[in-house]
Design a binder for these strands. Structure first.
Lengths: 213, 213
DNA sequence: TGCAAATGTGAGGATTACTCATGTTTTTAG
DNA sequence: CTAAAAACATGAGTAATCCTCACATTTGCA
């Protein structure tokens, strides 16, 4: 999860794989490329991001860019992958030690706030998730991420309701997670006040389902 | 909602407006263009749809295509607009005469089934909503659509719960609607069995919120 | 009938993701 | 240390595709 960040061909689509940087120098350059891409996405959105501009801002040639990323989508994918990995650690930590309903209530509520805060604050994450859903590889990454996060939630639910059907719990957890992401996306695309209200309403609904009345 | 289907510049982006067809001949040609685009999207997805191919299949020149559509997105937008308009009529009719909790339960349940069925059956709708979320104009269309549909739901809720805060009802309705669309998108991207389970779980959660236990 | 507006055409302009032949630096082997 | 090999760097050029525009044709109408 550290050295393999620069992805080659992901997804079913063809996309010639690229070398992973092995030297110190090239690792630093790849970091500069990702930083440049991130900045450009923050400024203008991933759609308007030009490969030439990424190269220029990173201080490398266009050829070097393609030395490590098979195509434009791969850069965006790499950024997205970092964000999700970060989030997952945070989520796993929050939910790991939950052992009762009240604990779940508190942990989940806090998690939603943190997630919402990140959505609001990180223009790149915002752009990638709300904008570039078009990309199949990204959608698959998001689904995998949702499944992983829902799995943490499922684990908690299994502890709290040992009698319940495991498959049902899993479905519930995945649904709640996905709905959360949908709510965030909606919330950041409407006004701030309405967005806050929507997130609060989601939190209420999800908690009702998770810990009952 | 009939003659103005061929849209010009939508959204804040620049996009030179185009003439609306006024003659019988051109109206038929525009229909052919939309039909060709629809078929191509069904076959390969909107991303792979080439303007030249649309023109060729519609039996018109590339220039004629651009006579009525300012750009590629406008064609997709026009198709999306038709679908949403169709759906809205159907939804309004279903919810109009609901007057008690049991009626809402039945109408909502049926609505979800119909919507899910359409998602599964219509490759074009599927592609446009699950794929081309990248487009700002499309996201705005979807939001407007969600708001309109949620409004029907809000009207019902106001009738059933006159005492409740109207703004809260509106937020609830919008959230439930948006979550429904998110659930559908998720459901069609996983296996059929899991998808069905997710939709069923969504239905349960939404109804719990709408009509109580 | 004749003219203006609407419509039709497709070669070519413009943009941009991406390639590749060639040169340079780093690592490795003897 | 040296030379070969591997990794890395470069940027002019290729290919694909959206879209324009100058000009031709058809239609509506006085």
């Amino acid at each position: 999860m550290e050295g393999s960040t620069v992805a080659g061909s992901q997804d079913g689509q063809i996309a010639s794989p690229r070398r992973a940087p092995s030297q110190q120098r090239s690792r630093e350059r790849v970091e500069r490329m990702l930083a440049a891409a991130s900045a450009l996405i923050a400024e203008q959105g991933s759609d308007a991001m030009r490969m030439g501009e990424v190269a220029e801002r990173a201080g490398v040639s266009i050829g070097s860019l393609y030395q490590f990323f098979p195509d434009k989508r791969a850069i965006i994918w790499a950024l997205a992958e970092r964000y999700t990995a970060e989030s997952q650690d945070c989520i796993a930590a929050s939910l790991a030690e939950v052992s009762d309903a009240e604990g779940l209530r508190r942990a989940f509520s806090e998690l939603v706030d943190i997630y919402y805060g990140r959505f609001l604050a990180e223009p790149v994450m915002r752009d990638i998730w709300s904008g570039t859903q078009a990309d199949k590889a990204l959608r698959e990454l998001e689904l995998a991420d949702s499944r992983a996060n829902a799995e943490f939630l499922t684990a908690v639910l299994r502890r709290l309701r040992p009698a319940a059907d495991p498959a049902t719990l899993e479905t519930t957890a995945l649904l709640i997670w996905q709905m959360g992401e949908a709510t965030m996306r909606l919330a950041i695309s409407v006004g701030r006040q309405e967005g806050d209200d929507l997130v609060a309403a989601y939190k209420r609904m999800a908690l009702r389902e998770l810990v009952g009345e």
